[in-house]
C-alpha cells in the first residue's frame, strides 16, 4: 500500500497534529515507529481531542487500523463517528471484510463487526464471510466466537446451522472448534441450563460422536463430546462401556489390542465407578506405559487416587468389622 501523509494534504491543513509525549529520557518499550505511523497518530490525537466526527476521520481511522489494528480506542472512536455521521453500515461491512482477512488474529475487529451487524439487524452475508475466514484458518477462535454471537442474536438455532457444522466436522474431524459449536447448538440454545434434554436428542448426539470416533478412534474431540453428553443428560458413564470396549478391553483382549488411548481412559473411570479397581489400574498402567506415555505422571496420579480410595475403604471395612465384633 502506498504511504500516506497529512502535512501536505490541503484537506488537513486546518489541523495541528498532537505529537506523542513520551515522558522524559526513559520511556519504556518505545517503538521505532515509521514516520507514516507517527504522523497519522499525531492527527488522530488532534481529532480525538477535538471530538471531531467527520468523513476524513473515517479515512484517518481506516489508515491507522491498517497500521495498528489492535489500537483499542481507534475502533471505538470509529464506531462513534459512524454513528454520528449516520454512515452507510453496509459500506462499513464491505470495508471490514478484506480488512479482517488481512488481520486474521485481530480481536477488536470482531467487536466492531458485532456492533455494526447488531445495528443493521440482519445476518445477511455473514455466514458466507465466516466461511471465507475459516478457509484461512478453520480453528480461528474469534471467528467461532462471532459465529456463536450471530446464531444467538438472530436465533439461527435451526437445522441449517447444524448441517453447516457437520460439514465443518466432515472437512476435519479433529476440528475441536466445530465440535464445540455443535455442543453450543444442541445444548446452548433452546434447551435451558439444567433442563432435561429429550431422549432422541441424546441418542442422536451419542451416535454422532460414536460414528466420528469409529472414523478416527484416536481423535480426542468426539470422546470429550461423548462424555459431555453423558454428563449433561445425567446418564451413568457405564452407558458407554459397551462402546468403549470396541477399542480396548483390558479384561478380555491382549494388551497390544488397543485402538484408542481415550477408550482406556474412559474404561478406567467406568471400572473405578463399578469398584473394579484392579481393571481400572490395569487400564491406567497401559496408558502410562504404552498408549499415552506423554501423560505418564497424570495416569500415575489417577492410579494413586484409586489406591488411596482403596486404602480408605479397607480401613472403613476393618473398623466396621471391629464394631460388629464388639457388638457381638
Amino acid at each position: 500500500m502506498a504511504r500516506k501523509y497529512y502535512h501536505d494534504d490541503p484537506k488537513w491543513s486546518d489541523v495541528a497534529p498532537l505529537p506523542q509525549e513520551d515522558y522524559g529520557h526513559h520511556p519504556l518499550a518505545a517503538i521505532a515507529y515509521t514516520e507514516e505511523y507517527s504522523e497519522a497518530m499525531g492527527y488522530l490525537r488532534a481529532c480525538m481531542a477535538a471530538n471531531e466526527h467527520s468523513e476524513r476521520v473515517l479515512e484517518l481511522t481506516e489508515h491507522i487500523i491498517g497500521l495498528n489494528p489492535a489500537h483499542y480506542t481507534v475502533w471505538l472512536y470509529r464506531a462513534q463517528t459512524l454513528s454520528a455521521l449516520n454512515s452507510d453500515l453496509r459500506a462499513e461491512i464491505a470495508w471490514l471484510n478484506p480488512t479482517a482477512l488481512q488481520h486474521l488474529k485481530n480481536y477488536q475487529i470482531w467487536h466492531h463487526r458485532q456492533t455494526i451487524i447488531d445495528k443493521l439487524g440482519s445476518p445477511d452475508g455473514e455466514p458466507a464471510f465466516i466461511t471465507a475466514m475459516l478457509d484461512q484458518d478453520s480453528k480461528n477462535y474469534h471467528v467461532w466466537s462471532y459465529r456463536q454471537w450471530l446464531v444467538k442474536r438472530f436465533d439461527m438455532f435451526d437445522g441449517r446451522e447444524l448441517k453447516w457444522t457437520e460439514g465443518m466436522i466432515d472437512d476435519d474431524v479433529r476440528n475441536n472448534s466445530a465440535w464445540n459449536h455443535r455442543w453450543f447448538l444442541v445444548f446452548g440454545g433452546t434447551v435451558g441450563e439444567g433442563e432435561k434434554v429429550e431422549r432422541d436428542v441424546v441418542v442422536r448426539e451419542l451416535e454422532y460422536a460414536q460414528d466420528a470416533i469409529r472414523k478416527a478412534p484416536q481423535n480426542q474431540s468426539p470422546w470429550n463430546y461423548l462424555r459431555g453428553v453423558i454428563r449433561r443428560s445425567g446418564l451413568p458413564l457405564s452407558a458407554l462401556q459397551h462402546f468403549a470396549l470396541e477399542f480396548a478391553d483390558p479384561e478380555n483382549r491382549p494388551d497390544d489390542d488397543v485402538f484408542s488411548s481415550h477408550a482406556l481412559d474412559l474404561l478406567a473411570d467406568i471400572y473405578a465407578a463399578a469398584g473394579k479397581t484392579e481393571l481400572a489400574v490395569k487400564a491406567l498402567d497401559l496408558l502410562a506405559t504404552r498408549y499415552d506415555p506423554i501423560r505418564k505422571t497424570y495416569w500415575e496420579y489417577r492410579k494413586g487416587l484409586l489406591e488411596a480410595e482403596g486404602r480408605k475403604e479397607e480401613t472403613g471395612a476393618a473398623s466396621a468389622a471391629a464394631v460388629e465384633t464388639a457388638a457381638a
Binding site: 519504556l28 517503538i31 497518530m41 495498528n68
Partner: peptide, 26 residues
C-alpha cells in the same frame, strides 16, 4: 536490547499496550 533500545517497528501493532511489553521486559 529490548530494555535499552527502540523496539523494531513491527511492534507497532502493540503500540497501545506498551505497559504490558514494559512489564515483560523488566
Amino acid at each position: 536490547r529490548n530494555l535499552k533500545t527502540f523496539l523494531p517497528h513491527h511492534y507497532t501493532g502493540n503500540d497501545s499496550m506498551r505497559m504490558t511489553l514494559a512489564f515483560f521486559i523488566l
